[in-house]
């Protein structure tokens, strides 16, 4: 599986509007998490992959998942995700935070690249394969550097599209 198989082209946010809080308190980090997740779920809605009535439920589901363990996997990457009945196919959004955002990452580093995944209730295989595709790509420092340097959603999409399944 390739990232462009499940990232919605119209749900790529080259510069998230969320800004880092002045302090790094737990409440501040939680507020960042909610804002990032809400913006990315909103992007999926705008792209036509989620109904307006489902967006808040998806945001809450992703936040509940985040509450049981961070999805900030380190190396400036986070993969917030959840299953939800609102989707029938795995769908993802990608967002870049140029200045970095605190996300409770495993390595303590701010996150620059967010990949949000929403999976159907009954497709664990797709979810595992998508996670693998994201991790495989994000382990490549050159790829991540290029991704962070992309100025537009189109350039990000072109980069995702250039990545083969073997990465």
């Amino acid at each position: 599986m390739r990232m462009c198989n499940f990232i919605a082209r119209e749900a790529i946010v080259p510069a998230l509007s969320v800004t880092a809080p002045p302090d790094r308190t737990a409440a501040g980090v939680l507020a960042v998490k909610e804002a990032v997740i809400r913006e990315m779920v909103g992007a999926l809605h705008t792209a036509g992959h989620l109904q307006a009535a489902d967006t808040d439920g998806v945001v809450q589901a992703v936040l509940r998942r985040e509450a049981v363990g961070t999805t900030g996997i380190g190396r400036h990457i986070a993969i917030p995700h959840s299953r939800h009945a609102a989707v029938h196919n795995l769908i993802g959004a990608l967002g870049i935070a140029p200045a970095g955002l605190p996300f409770d990452s495993l390595d303590g580093l701010d996150v620059h690249v967010f990949v949000l995944l929403v999976s159907p209730q009954d497709r664990p295989g797709d979810h595992l394969r998508a996670l693998e595709a994201v991790v495989r790509a994000m382990r490549n420092d050159e790829f991540v550097a290029k991704l962070r340097a992309c100025p537009t959603a189109d350039r990000i999409w072109e980069l995702l599209d250039s990545v083969g399944p073997g990465w």
């Binding site: 996997i73 380190g74 495993l106 664990p124 295989g125 595992l128 996670l131 693998e132 991790v135 495989r136």
Partner: peptide, 12 residues
């Protein structure tokens, strides 16, 4: 290594 483990794609 969490990333390594995710890349196993160990299905049910």
């Amino acid at each position: 290594n969490l990333m390594d483990l995710i890349m196993l794609v160990a299905m049910p």
